Amino acid sequence: MAELRTEEEQVEALKRWWKENGLSLVAGVALAAAGVLGWNTWQGYQENQATAASMRYQQLVNLTAGNDLDEAQLPEARALVDEIVDEHGKTLYADLARLMDARLAVAQGDLAGARERLQSLADAGSDNYVAGLARLRLARLLVAEGDADQALNVLQSGVPEALAAQRAEVRGDAYHALERREEAATAWREALRLAATNEQPLYGVQLKLDNLGLESPDLEGSALETSSRDTTSHDNRGLDA
């Protein structure tokens, strides 16, 4: 389920980036190209660059698909990350590759390196949505490492409303790790409410609530019913940075 969420987040990030930056990118390219290269030539160049970045990123996704990364493939994956960042550093693909790089660091047992990469992307991400993803993954990693207080600090700002349900879920995870059960229940209920309102799938949260053994109010929404039927536990997801 963590892998599914990762793919959904990447698709959503791409959609949002193009929606917010597509027109300005085209305008900027047009201005830069004027008087230097013919528009058609410059447009072709940009399209080739975008295609190359997309192809390299798809290679990276294919190489790292699945929950268990092959140790022998890690060097190739890290090399692809470096190539995407070096050659296409101003694109969304570079930020997504940096997110993947943090996951690769976890796979290699380099938790400190993963934290550093996620913090850097959270602080300087060129896309607010991707920076928000970085904060969420950083918070999950901190909870998994036993630093739930710091995880709560990370979630205080910098997470866009589009990720509000996920933020509430991770906040609940942090409260649960601190044995603040009532606050955990409140946060998870909020996560389910937001997921239902926004028609977003949110897997495993109802199971977490059920395991608390606390009474919870009824929540409306067909999306919530879908979430509550999912009984997949992913308490160890924090290490999938």
Rank of each mutant, 00 (worst) to 15 (best):
A13K: 05
D95Q: 07
T64Q: 08
D149Q: 15
N21S: 12
Q49R: 08
D68T: 10
E161W: 13
A53I: 06
A196S: 06
R237Y: 05
A191E: 04
L207H: 04
L118D: 03
Q43S: 10
A65G: 07
H88E: 10
E145F: 14
Q156A: 15
A79E: 09
A144K: 06
L224I: 07
A223Q: 04
Y45F: 15
V36D: 07
A196W: 03
A191W: 00
Y203D: 11
N48D: 10
R189V: 14
E225W: 12
A114Q: 08
N67T: 15
W42P: 02
Q206G: 11
D230C: 09
T41I: 07
R229F: 05
A223V: 04
S227G: 05
P201Y: 02
L224G: 06
L202P: 08
A33N: 01
E183V: 00
D147C: 07
D127K: 02
T6E: 15
L133F: 03
Y93N: 11
Q46C: 13
D95N: 03
N67M: 13
A107P: 05
R135M: 01
N128F: 10
G89W: 00
E225A: 11
A52P: 08
A134D: 08
T91C: 01
Q200W: 11
D235A: 15
A107F: 00
Q59T: 12
A241T: 09
N211H: 08
L214Y: 05
L136W: 07
A79G: 00
E47Q: 14
N153C: 11
L155K: 01
L202N: 07
E3T: 15
D82L: 07
A185G: 05
L118W: 06
L202H: 01
L163T: 10
D235S: 13
V130Y: 00
A124C: 02
L194H: 01
V170E: 00
L23R: 13
G213F: 05
K208L: 04
E161Y: 14
P217R: 12
R137K: 15
A174G: 04
G66Q: 13
A32G: 06
K208F: 00
V81K: 01
D110H: 11
N153G: 15
S222K: 08
N128V: 12
S120I: 05
D240N: 13
A53C: 06
T186Y: 09
N62K: 01
T186E: 14
L207T: 09
A124G: 11
R78K: 13
Q156H: 10
I84F: 05
A65M: 09
L69T: 02
G38L: 14
M1K: 08
Y203F: 09
T64L: 01
N67H: 14
D240W: 15
L178N: 01
L23P: 12
Q73D: 15
R229Y: 09
N40L: 15
S222M: 11
A134Q: 11
G109W: 04
R117F: 03
A164Q: 13
A97D: 06
W188K: 00
D149S: 15
L214P: 03
L194P: 00
E116K: 11
V143D: 01
N21G: 05
L96V: 09
V85N: 03
Q73A: 13
A112P: 06
P75N: 00
A50T: 09
D82I: 06
S24A: 13
V154F: 05
G38H: 13
E12L: 14
A77E: 05
